[in-house]
C-alpha cells in the first residue's frame, strides 16, 4: 500500500488553514476597507483625506493580521510542531506561508491601488500627475510588508518582526516626503498628466525587485536551515 498515491495537495490545505484561522479579522478589515472606499469617494477633500488614511491603515492592518496571525503565532503558540509533522518540508511550509500571506495582501493592496488611481482620475481637484507618486508610495507599502513577512519567517522572532514592522511604518512619511522633494517626481505631481520618467519607473522597478528579492532570500534561507523547530 503506497500512501503517496493517495496523497492530497498538502500545500493548498495549509494555505486554506491559514486563511481560515485569520478569517474573522480579515472579513472585518475588508468591510472596513470597503467603508473607507465609500468615505473616500464622497466628493469633498476632507472625506477624501480621512478615507485614504483609513484605507492605508486597513491595508497595513491586513498585513499585521496575516503576519502575526499566521506566521508569528505558528511558533509562539507552538502549533508549528503539528504543521511540521505533516508530509511537507520546511521550504514547502515557507512557500505555503508566502502564498497565503502575499495572496490576501496583494488582493487588498490592489483594491487600495485601484481605488486611489480611480479617485485621482475622476476628481478635478486631484491632478492626474499624482499617479506615479501614488504608485511609488503604495509600492513602498508592499515592500514594507514583504520584508516584514520575510523577517518573520527567517528570524522566527516575534520581537524582530515587531521592530521591522514599526520601523517601516514610521519611515513611510519620511519616504513620502523624500519622494515629494525629488524634483523628477515632485515637479510633476501638480501636473495634468502622469509623467512616467526614468526616475519614477526606476524607483518602481527597485521596489518590486526588493519584493522579489525578499521572497527569494526567504526561500533560500529556509532551505538551508538545519534546525527548523
Amino acid at each position: 500500500m503506497n500512501k503517496q498515491v493517495s496523497a492530497r495537495p498538502v500545500f493548498w490545505q495549509l494555505v486554506r488553514k491559514d486563511w481560515y484561522l485569520v478569517a474573522w479579522p480579515l472579513v472585518a478589515l475588508l468591510l472596513a476597507g470597503l467603508a473607507s472606499i465609500v468615505v473616500l469617494s464622497i466628493n469633498h477633500w476632507m472625506t477624501f483625506l480621512v478615507g485614504s488614511i483609513l484605507l492605508i491603515s486597513v491595508v497595513v492592518l491586513i498585513g499585521v493580521v496575516l503576519v502575526f496571525g499566521s506566521v508569528v503565532n505558528e511558533r509562539s503558540q507552538k502549533t508549528l510542531a503539528l504543521v511540521m509533522s505533516l508530509p511537507i518540508t520546511a521550504v514547502q511550509y515557507t512557500a505555503a506561508k508566502l502564498v497565503s500571506n502575499v495572496g490576501v495582501f496583494t488582493l487588498a493592496w490592489l483594491v487600495l491601488l485601484g481605488s486611489t488611481v480611480v479617485a485621482i482620475l475622476t476628481r478635478d481637484n486631484l491632478p492626474d500627475g499624482l499617479i506615479p507618486f501614488a504608485v511609488i508610495v503604495l509600492g513602498q507599502l508592499y515592500v514594507a510588508y514583504a520584508i516584514t513577512v520575510a523577517v518573520a519567517l527567517i528570524s522566527e522572532s516575534e520581537l524582530w518582526t515587531i521592530v521591522v514592522f514599526s520601523a517601516f511604518n514610521i519611515s513611510i512619511s519620511i519616504f513620502m516626503n523624500l519622494m515629494g522633494r525629488l524634483s523628477e517626481i515632485g515637479s510633476h505631481m501638480e501636473g495634468p498628466v502622469p509623467v512616467w520618467n526614468a526616475t519614477a519607473l526606476g524607483i518602481i522597478a527597485v521596489e518590486w525587485l526588493i519584493v522579489a528579492g525578499a521572497v527569494a532570500v526567504t526561500l533560500w534561507v529556509q532551505s538551508r536551515k538545519t534546525d527548523f523547530l
Binding site: Y20, L21, Q77, K78, T79, A81, L82, S85
Partner: peptide
C-alpha cells in the same frame, strides 16, 4: 509541547 489551534 505541541499545541493545536486555540481558536479552532
Amino acid at each position: 509541547d505541541m499545541n493545536l489551534y486555540k481558536a479552532a
